[in-house]
């Protein structure tokens, strides 16, 4: 039997990991199971029976040796590892009665996940910021197209950082 696959293009911002998890679950509920993320924003699905797969995304970078231990823990806890894409690790598990469906079971560790993401985005934003304030080019023009583009990207970064900070704040308990 021929295996039916479909590719979908979908954009998620860095702070929308939970929306992405929900979308992947919805796709599985309709019989489309994630087989591969070809490139950020390009998702490939295989056709199959509708299943209630719960997807969870972890953000973490580690060394090769550590990754084996990391994946072993998830596998033992019943999580199927799909792949890594740009620092995000994709896991899924069938939602059944009595199954623990969270990979992070307390606020502290959930906050740490977003702090790692924040640190990474912060490092990326730095060269952008430096190129913005770089005044060394003599025909000093604030509105040169390249500068406007960098400014827009930089503002997007700042917005992303704020969104993630708000998420962290929301997770903090009384």
């Amino acid at each position: 039997m021929e295996k039916k696959t479909v590719r979908k293009f979908k954009w998620f911002w860095a702070w929308q990991d939970e929306a992405e998890e929900d979308w992947l679950r919805e796709m599985s509920n309709q019989g489309w199971h994630l087989s591969q993320i070809v490139f950020p924003t390009v998702y490939q699905f295989n056709a199959g029976d509708a299943q209630d797969y719960v997807y969870r995304l972890d953000y973490r970078s580690h060394w090769k040796m550590e990754k084996a231990d990391y994946l072993q823990l998830f596998q033992d806890a019943g999580w199927e590892y799909l792949q890594e894409m740009a620092g995000w690790h994709y896991f899924r598990k069938l939602a059944r009665q009595g199954e623990e469906l969270e990979i992070y079971t307390d606020a502290e560790s959930k906050i740490e996940k977003y702090q790692r993401l924040l640190a990474f985005l912060g490092i990326l934003a730095l060269p952008l910021f430096l190129s913005l304030i770089n005044l060394s080019d003599p025909p000093y023009d604030w509105f040169s197209p390249i500068r406007v583009i960098i400014l827009l990207i930089f503002m997007l970064y700042v917005y992303a950082l704020v969104r993630i900070l708000l998420r962290i704040n929301q997770l903090k308990r009384i």
């Binding site: 969870r56 972890d58 231990d69 990391y70 072993q72 823990l73 998830f74 033992d76 806890a77 999580w79 623990e100 969270e102 990979i103 992070y104 079971t105 307390d106 560790s109 740490e112 996940k113």
Partner: peptide, 27 residues
């Protein structure tokens, strides 16, 4: 090992505390 910890924690805490693999790896 990790999986043993997850099971034991759930058992001794009488089900009040469950430790997911993401949390456990970090701890």
């Amino acid at each position: 090992h990790g999986y043993g910890v997850m099971q034991k924690v759930e058992q001794i805490s009488q089900g009040t505390v469950k430790v997911g693999p993401g949390t456990l790896y970090g701890v």
